[in-house]
Amino acid sequence: MKWLIVVLALMVAGAILGPISSGNAGYVLIQFAGWSFETSVIALAIITVIAVVAVSLIVATINALLRRTRKSGKWLAQRREQRAKQLVKTAQLELLQHNYMDALQCFEKAYKKHSSAGIAAQASYSAQQCNEYGKAEFWRDKAGADYLKTNWILKAKRIESLKSSDTSEAAREMQELLQRDPKDPYIWQLATEVYIKSERWQQLTDIMPSIERYAGFDDKRLAELKHQVMYQRFLEEGRKSDDALFQQWRSLSKSERNTDWIRLSYADALRHFGKKEACAKIIYKGLKRGDLSIEQANSRGLLFANYAKLVEHVQDTLKRNPDHKGYLRALALLAFDNKDYSLAQRAMSKLIDNSDSTEDWVLMGDIYNALGDSQLAANAYQKALA
């Protein structure tokens, strides 16, 4: 800019000094679009200088204002970003203290000052934790496409909130979620809870392979779950008719019928409907084939004396192995069921000397009570409670 002013000043000086030195100031006539303007060379030079200086001053002023505005905008942006960082820090501290609503409010304020996917994602998580699922979904959308693949957790949290208040809706939404073939253990554990609460036993049966694979249940929990599911399915059929219950059993493959938890479930259902002889028969066949252990039958109370082959099997086994604890208890249970309390007492006396089982002492108390010996019964019950 400075060099341009110098050049113009030299040109103007030349235009003025030249005519003056020659004794002729000179005139200038300008015509344009019907307009005419006449002046001396000196006056034109002065006007030009004034115009250039004015324009230079205006341009310089505008540039100064723009520089100041940019600096001011940058300062304001830095201040907003600093405030957003402070809000995020506060929100994260609230998260660590499980104050999810306070954290959500801080994240929302921070996002207004500095929009970022990370803040939106943390706001979504906070909303999710305080069961604000609409807001959680809103902020998950704000976070962007990279975070949308985690939307399943929002669905799962909603299902968890429904599982006690609206089991049918929870089961319906769970079915939709499982169609995505999730691998997360939490989803399969939640599915187990939802279907049990809504009594969807067939659906539980259908997803049992996935539950075994992904839910992370230990062997004991899996065994209990399988038994519960199959038992409830048998009960559903048994409520229809005896034949429906039998047909449900026969519809299973031979290998399924030989599986311990399926056989025990069927025997439990038969006992539930008062089919004690049929129950004892199912248990006897399982024991003979080695599909069941006598301890499984004892613990579930599935031994009944009205099936002679079962009684014979227990007696024959004890002849070969007189000290077998499981079969001694089985003999006591069968004798008690047959009201042969003396035999039951002799069997339990042989077993109980070295037993610290609560169940054994309770059974002994029941036997003494049936024999009319209330003092010995009380002693046995007291040992059961010890």
Rank of each mutant, 00 (worst) to 15 (best):
K2H: 15
I5M: 14
V7E: 04
L8C: 15
V12R: 00
G18F: 15
G23R: 01
I30P: 01
Q31K: 15
T39V: 00
S40T: 14
I42V: 07
A43G: 09
S56N: 11
L57T: 02
I58H: 04
I58K: 08
A60Y: 09
T61I: 09
R67H: 09
R68Q: 09
R68S: 12
R70M: 11
R70G: 07
R70N: 13
S72G: 09
S72M: 08
L76Q: 14
A84Y: 04
K89S: 11
K89G: 07
Q92W: 08
L95P: 07
M101I: 12
L104Q: 06
Y111K: 02
A127R: 00
Q129N: 10
Y133H: 11
A136E: 05
R140A: 07
D141A: 11
A143H: 03
G144A: 11
D146G: 09
L148C: 10
K149G: 07
N151E: 12
K157A: 14
I159C: 01
S161L: 07
L162A: 03
L162R: 03
A171N: 03
M174Q: 03
Q175T: 13
E176G: 12
R180G: 12
W188P: 03
W188L: 01
T192C: 08
E193Q: 12
R200F: 08
I211A: 01
E212A: 09
Y214L: 02
D218K: 04
D218C: 03
R221N: 14
E224G: 10
M230I: 10
Y231P: 05
L235T: 08
L235K: 15
E236N: 10
S241Y: 10
D242L: 14
A244L: 08
L245G: 00
Q247M: 11
Q248V: 06
K254N: 13
E256G: 01
W261Q: 11
W261V: 14
D268F: 11
G274W: 03
E277R: 15
C279E: 03
R289E: 15
G290W: 05
G290V: 02
D291G: 09
L292D: 05
Q296K: 10
G301F: 07
Q315N: 12
R320F: 05
H324T: 06
Y327D: 03
R329V: 04
A330P: 08
A330C: 05
L331G: 08
L333R: 13
K339T: 12
A344N: 02
Q345T: 10
R346V: 12
A347R: 07
D353V: 15
W361Y: 14
I367C: 00
A370D: 04
G372C: 00
Q375K: 15
A380Y: 00
Y381W: 04
Q382E: 11
A384W: 03
